[in-house]
Simulated scan of single mutants.
Amino acid sequence: MEEITEGVNNINLTGDLHKKNRIQVSNTKKPLFFYVNLAKRYMQQHNEVELSALGMAIATVVTVAEILKNNGLAVEKKIMTSTVDMRDESRGRPVQKAKIEILLGKTENFDELMLLLPKKGTL
């Protein structure tokens, strides 16, 4: 019995490791620059970040990616679009939602640019 539990725990851990640099963006929960700053931190730690969103939050993901690219911090590595089957909570029927995943990588001068940016709480 212990071996099975340990095996399941190992599966969960390896699955989590693969997704450590993914940010699932919502357009209702956090402000735009929360995601911009989080993406910068993820790129510092992992050299790349994957931004993911469904439906109406897609515009937020695209805006975050564009801010990072326009400031010279990120380069686009991959964009994936798809549809996801979901259940409509209010009507109880299946619906399809658009999904986007944008993989961004650090630019060559990312670290240099990050040093030039003002730190939180300083003038």
Rank of each mutant, 00 (worst) to 15 (best):
T63G: 04
N10Q: 10
D16E: 12
E112K: 13
I23M: 05
Q96S: 13
M43S: 02
M86A: 15
L54T: 07
M43R: 01
R41I: 12
L115F: 09
K99L: 13
A74N: 03
R22E: 10
I58W: 01
V8Y: 07
V84H: 02
E3H: 11
N70V: 02
N109R: 13
N37S: 11
Q24C: 12
K30S: 09
S52P: 00
M114G: 02
S52L: 14
L117W: 10
P94T: 08
A65K: 00
T60P: 00
G15S: 07
I79E: 10
K20I: 11
L17E: 08
V62K: 10
K20Q: 14
V25I: 15
K119A: 14
H46M: 06
L17Y: 06
G105S: 10
G7D: 07
M80R: 12
E89T: 13
V64M: 04
T14D: 08
A39W: 03
K40V: 09
K119F: 07
E112W: 05
L116P: 04
G72A: 04
V95W: 05
A65Y: 00
M114Y: 02
K97Q: 14
V49K: 00
S82W: 01
E6Y: 06
L13F: 08
N27W: 06
G121E: 06
D16I: 05
N12S: 07
G105E: 14
T60K: 11
R91L: 14
A39M: 05
I58M: 05
T28Y: 09
E89N: 14
M56F: 10
G72M: 04
K20M: 10
F34N: 13
K78L: 14
M1Y: 08
E101W: 00
A53T: 00
G92Y: 01
S82V: 02
K29M: 09
Y42V: 09
V84N: 03
T28W: 08
F34Q: 08
M56W: 09
D16G: 06
Q96K: 15
T107V: 01
K106H: 01
E76D: 11
Y42M: 15
K40C: 11
E108M: 10
I11T: 07
N71F: 12
G55L: 03
K19R: 12
A57G: 05
E6P: 02
S90I: 08
F34C: 04
P118A: 06
V25F: 01
G92P: 03
M1W: 09
K19Y: 06
T14E: 12
G105L: 04
E101Q: 14
A59H: 09
E76K: 13
I4F: 12
L32H: 11
L13A: 09
V64I: 11
E48T: 06
G105M: 05
H46Y: 15
L51I: 03
